[in-house]
Amino acid sequence: MQCENFERRLHRLLDERRAPEDDAELRRHAAACNRCDELLASQAALRRGLVSVESPEPPSSFVDDVMRRLVVGPSTVVTQTEAAVTTSDRLRVKRRTTPMSSVLAIAAVFLLAVASAAFLAFRVNRGGDALVQDQIAIADIASPSLPRDAALSPAPTMPIEKPQETAAEASRTPEERYAMILAAWRTRLPELGDTLGLTSSDAATMQGAFAVSQLTDRLRTPLAASLASTLNVLRSVILFSEQDSAKPQARLWRVEDAVST
């Protein structure tokens, strides 16, 4: 047997999980060849070494640890193995908990929005037709130099300007009030049209639109009031912006206000 055949046979026997040192043909060649003798002894040492290299047993809690990790992820692995949990595992747990906290946060914001809307609606209903405006004085805005526990003083209550209904106004019928509003519109529209850049045909169209006499009584009074308010706000804004003085204060307007100006 040649050395090349010796090696080939040796590996074939190892592939077949047989012990080469038990093969008579190999031993015969090894007895005559020092190199092949060393090779035969080396593989025998390797096989002995592999057998003696014992793998340690997994911990007794291994099955339970796997089951726990399967259900809740690696963060609950017992202390003994906790140090071996990888960063990717921790991120996986974090990702799993994120959707629940997001849902809770969205629900909290939604509830807050609903509560705020309900509170505001309640305030508006309480106010009725009066215009309630809470104001905070400029001096109440805390400056950085103020101590952290400085409290805001209550804002002064602004007197609500409520128009007094005159005897002449009270005696008018809704038709008469509406007619006065229309007259005011007709008087002021050309002037406003010039300011706003309306053409004469636009003004005529607007006049025609408001000259509808088929409106019911229930619609005429609020419509007249809203027209009066709109007209005066428009006029006030234009006039005050030209004069650059104090802004007009919000207040309720009477029919007379629209007509008299």
């Binding site: 291994f62 796997v66 990790r69 399967l70 690696p74 692995v77 193995t81 140090a83 071996a84 595992d89």
Partner: peptide
């Protein structure tokens, strides 16, 4: 510890 962690992950993936 590395072997324990890898073996646990093996079974979790397998299951």
């Amino acid at each position: 510890h590395d072997a324990e962690d890898a073996a646990q992950e093996t079974f979790v993936r397998a299951l």
